[in-house]
């Protein structure tokens, strides 16, 4: 298993290089270092020297992908791409266009993101599993039929409506919770309740409907018949036999997104004014700060790949049939 994990992690390297190449190309296809310098220096003070100085200062004075002047390995390494990419691999995200340290920003803003994402995630999963189990238990009855209809209706509503309506009702009409904002320490709690509730509610429709299909798929299997033939009750069958098997697809789907919780939710955080990584990204988008966007892309990709490895490991934990080789 160790060998398998190491292999997966090694495989991540070419993927991360590919990702960087992609974002890099995407950006420099439309933008030259000169353009960047001009935008940042402002229109007035643009002189050739100033541009050159700006470029040298930030390491943009080298060729993009291939350095004809150098030979051997250096023709690849002494380039903008290499210099900027290699640093990402040691998680040095460099500086934003306005000079702030991106790495420090990320470390700082990670916590508010987690403060919302983790409770939303945990409560959401538990509720989804419970509702799905209820639907599966009452399968074929009206509870199931209307439950599914409700789920479909709920998943047809955009998350933005949940947020706006939630804010309108809970904060503006009933004055129960603050509309938006954030505070440090425990005082943050009252700011967290609304986003968490909305996050959970908006996910219930899709989640419980999906998990219901997992249960139903298991319920039709032969081992369930065996369990019934042994004289177990429907509840015992559902909890002891079906649940454990249905947990395999549920858990593996869930584990993949755990690392991505760090990234926060763009929409949630910006609506509720949470100073997390999601709103960080949105700010960067609005300021067209490419350095931050690229850093977030890289971070997101690493977390995604990490999630995949975690998924594989979690398979071995919940499903004894799976062995990583």
């Amino acid at each position: 298993m160790i060998a398998y994990i190491i292999r997966r992690l090694l495989y991540a390297i070419p993927i991360l290089i590919g990702i960087n190449l992609l974002t890099f190309t995407l950006f420099f296809m439309v933008n030259s270092p000169d353009d960047m310098a001009r935008v940042h220096l402002g229109v007035k003070r643009v002189t050739t020297e100033a541009i050159e100085a700006w470029k040298t200062d930030r390491g943009y004075d080298k060729p993009l992908l291939y350095n004809y002047k150098e030979s051997g390995i250096k023709s690849f390494s002494n380039t903008i791409f290499f210099q900027h990419t290699v640093r990402l691999f040691v998680l040095d995200f460099g500086r934003a266009d306005d000079g702030r340290d991106i790495g420090r920003d990320i470390r700082q803003r990670m916590w508010p993101s987690l403060a919302i994402a983790v409770p939303t995630f945990i409560v959401g999963i538990l509720l989804n599993i419970t509702f799905a189990m209820l639907l599966a238990f009452f399968r074929g009855t009206y509870v199931d039929v209307w439950g599914v209809v409700l789920s479909v209706a709920m998943m047809s509503i955009s998350i933005m409506f949940y947020i706006i309506l939630g804010q309108l009702i809970m904060s503006k009409l009933w004055h129960l919770l603050p509309i938006s904002g954030y505070d440090s320490g425990l005082r943050a709690l009252k700011f967290l309740i609304l986003p968490v509730i909305i996050g959970v509610v908006s996910g219930i429709g899709a989640g419980s409907r999906l998990y219901r299909t997992f249960y139903l798929e298991e319920i039709n299997k032969d081992y369930v018949r065996t369990a019934r033939a042994k004289g177990l009750s429907s509840l015992q069958v559902l909890f002891k036999h079906v649940l454990r098997n249905a947990m395999v697809p549920i858990l593996t789907g869930v584990v993949a997104i755990i690392p991505l919780l760090f990234m926060g939710s763009l929409v949630m955080e910006s609506f509720f004014g949470i100073p997390g990584l999601g709103s960080y990204t949105i700010d960067a988008i609005n300021q067209q700060d490419f350095a931050i966007v690229r850093a977030m892309v890289f971070l997101g990709s690493i977390l995604y790949i990490f999630g995949l490895v975690l998924t594989d490991i979690s398979y071995t934990l919940v499903d004894p049939r799976v062995r990583l080789e």
Partner: peptide, 10 residues
């Protein structure tokens, strides 16, 4: 691997 929102953003 790239979170889709971020790829779109970029």
């Amino acid at each position: 691997s790239i979170p889709s929102v971020l790829l779109i953003v970029a």
